Simulated scan of single mutants.
Amino acid sequence: MLDDERARATVRVRGTQDGVRLLLPRATPLAVVLEQVRDLLESRSSFFRGAALTLDFSEREPVLDEIAALQQLLDRHGIRIQAIGAATSDVRQRLERWGFRTETAEPARRLRLIEPDSEQTPDGSATYLRRTLRSGMSVEAEGHLVLIGDVNPGALVVAGGDVLVWGVVRGTVHAGRHGDTDAVIAALRLAPMQLRIANLVARAPDRGGQLLDAPALARVVDGQIVIEPWRIERR
């Protein structure tokens, strides 16, 4: 029960089909919320860089002064707020009167979380997970990650090392999160919303674009992410 209470008092991060979502805790003082958001932005700067962000107030009563303070903090890190999420139509109408674009709330479904430590680097260990990740689910590993299952749109995978998916990637995958440009992302099929390796980003192709419909590997070549047929001998 104490773990549940601690989780509810902490700002949570969720990858979605449309970007990144910050779920704000119900009763935590604003000063603590700002400190938690600042820590997230500084420890995971490459993950947030260029992301479209939604502030989710489904668990917290939105206050204009609080939104303004959060907006100032995010602005200083170059992050744009694309919308504010709320649980009820009354709250969404109030936010719209304040001039914000709104979204409905999404249920928080976090499958497994290994808290990241920005001062650590992958040590060769791997996290093994046998589960398909559906929209709203996320998993993080400090080292390498092996996932037996699919990564559906709206799901998020973050690892300090390589990410190997024995399935289809349609969501967001971030490998080498501490800046390791030698990290790779491999899957039976890559059709992602977004891939990240270190601080580099590769987005989904335009509508109608086609990625490899076969086992594929994403790696960094000449400062950009390339996707190519997965051949084990290359590694």
Score class of each variant (00 low, 15 high):
residue 64 L to Q: 15
residue 65 D to P: 05
residue 68 A to V: 12
residue 70 L to C: 09
residue 71 Q to V: 04
residue 72 Q to Y: 03
residue 73 L to T: 07
residue 73 L to M: 10
residue 75 D to S: 14
residue 76 R to Y: 05
residue 77 H to Q: 12
residue 78 G to C: 10
residue 78 G to E: 09
residue 79 I to S: 03
residue 80 R to F: 05
residue 85 G to K: 01
residue 85 G to R: 01
residue 86 A to I: 08
residue 87 A to E: 15
residue 87 A to K: 15
residue 89 S to D: 14
residue 90 D to K: 15
residue 91 V to M: 11
residue 92 R to F: 06
residue 92 R to P: 13
residue 96 E to C: 07
residue 96 E to Y: 06
residue 99 G to H: 13
residue 99 G to W: 07
residue 99 G to C: 08
residue 100 F to W: 15
residue 104 T to Q: 13
residue 106 E to K: 13
residue 106 E to Q: 13
residue 107 P to N: 10
residue 108 A to R: 02
residue 110 R to C: 10
residue 110 R to W: 06
residue 111 L to E: 09
residue 114 I to F: 04
residue 114 I to L: 10
residue 115 E to L: 09
residue 116 P to G: 03
residue 118 S to R: 13
residue 121 T to E: 11
residue 126 A to P: 01
residue 126 A to M: 07
residue 129 L to W: 05
residue 129 L to T: 10
residue 134 R to W: 04
residue 135 S to Q: 12
residue 137 M to G: 02
residue 139 V to S: 01
residue 140 E to M: 06
residue 140 E to K: 03
residue 143 G to R: 08
residue 146 V to Y: 03
residue 146 V to Q: 02
residue 153 P to N: 12
residue 154 G to C: 04
residue 157 V to P: 00
residue 160 G to V: 07
residue 161 G to K: 04
residue 161 G to I: 05
residue 161 G to Q: 05
residue 163 V to A: 11
residue 163 V to S: 07
residue 164 L to P: 02
residue 164 L to H: 11
residue 164 L to D: 12
residue 165 V to T: 04
residue 167 G to E: 11
residue 167 G to V: 10
residue 168 V to K: 15
residue 171 G to P: 00
residue 171 G to L: 00
residue 172 T to H: 00
residue 173 V to L: 02
residue 180 D to P: 07
residue 182 D to T: 15
residue 182 D to W: 02
residue 185 I to S: 05
residue 190 L to C: 10
residue 190 L to R: 00
residue 190 L to W: 00
residue 191 A to K: 06
residue 193 M to E: 00
residue 193 M to I: 09
residue 193 M to T: 01
residue 194 Q to L: 15
residue 195 L to T: 01
residue 195 L to G: 00
residue 196 R to P: 00
residue 197 I to N: 01
